[in-house]
């Protein structure tokens, strides 16, 4: 068989991943706006509450995690809707490559464009909230697993609402209850570390949840995309 007709799974994944990453680099506002939103709102919180050091260290992990989820929800509309609007999505669905794999590539690219920048700026927020360096490291670890799980769960919500106009709030309604475990474990693990108790079980849970979401999210998203674009 001709080699060009027989593209391997990995190269299909790579092509999709590269394309989405490039798309994101060419539209930096898509990447930057949620990030600026995240930084600005987290920085605005101390104005609204008592900004003493003890208070900030107490509420910091929760605020950072809530804001991470909120700014994440803002990015979800670009995950599939842009492709659906310009018709690329139909070609992606029709392609001979397995759709869950391509969806996974899109999810990974989404994590690179939304999760990774969040992790990169999070130390600044940690400093604003009076965190110690080791606490910041724990926060980065929770954000690492947590944002990937958010990408996976968010992909389901975005794919379910692909045929709906103005679905931004709806997506949040759908995925927020499912994201609650990530919020609980993400924020609590940092809080527990600050209180000096064990944290490793929280990180174990988050990585396990990540793997679990990885096992069903690409398939559910692929099925929803197929149904939604009929």
């Amino acid at each position: 068989m001709n080699k060009s007709n027989n593209i391997s799974l990995l190269s299909g994944f790579n092509a999709m991943f590269r394309r989405d990453c490039l798309h994101c680099i060419k539209n930096p506002s898509q990447l930057l706006n949620p990030l600026i939103f995240f930084v600005m709102i987290t920085a605005a919180f101390p104005f609204a509450v008592d900004s003493s050091k003890s208070q900030l260290t107490q509420i910091g992990p929760g605020i950072i995690w809530i804001m991470a989820i909120l700014s994440y929800l803002l990015t979800l509309q670009h995950l599939y809707l842009d492709d659906a609007d310009d018709g690329c999505l139909d070609y992606i669905i029709l392609s001979p490559q397995p759709l869950p794999l391509l969806v996974l590539a899109k999810i990974c690219a989404h994590w690179i464009s939304s999760g990774l920048p969040l992790i990169i700026v999070s130390p600044i927020i940690g400093i604003i909230y009076q965190m110690q360096v080791d606490t910041i490291l724990v926060m980065i670890a929770t954000l690492f697993f947590g944002t990937f799980a958010l990408s996976l769960i968010g992909s389901i919500g975005a794919s379910l609402t692909i045929s709906i106009n103005n679905s931004n709030i709806l997506v949040s309604l759908l995925v927020l209850p499912i994201m609650i475990p990530i919020l609980i474990f993400g924020a609590r693990t940092i809080g527990l570390y600050q209180a000096g108790t064990t944290t490793i079980s929280g990180l174990y849970f988050m990585s396990a949840y990540c793997m679990f979401a990885l096992s069903f999210s690409p398939f559910a998203s692929a099925a929803a995309l197929k149904i939604g674009s009929e």
Binding site: I156, I178, I180, P181, F205, A220, A223, I227
Partner: peptide, 26 residues
């Protein structure tokens, strides 16, 4: 479309209910 998509959502919710319950308990 509504039938199938909402059925997917229900199933995703259902497999997450034990996790939600466990994490809330923790």
């Amino acid at each position: 479309q509504a039938d199938k998509l909402s059925a997917i959502l229900i199933l995703i919710g259902a497999i997450n209910i034990p996790i939600i319950h466990f994490s809330v308990e923790w």
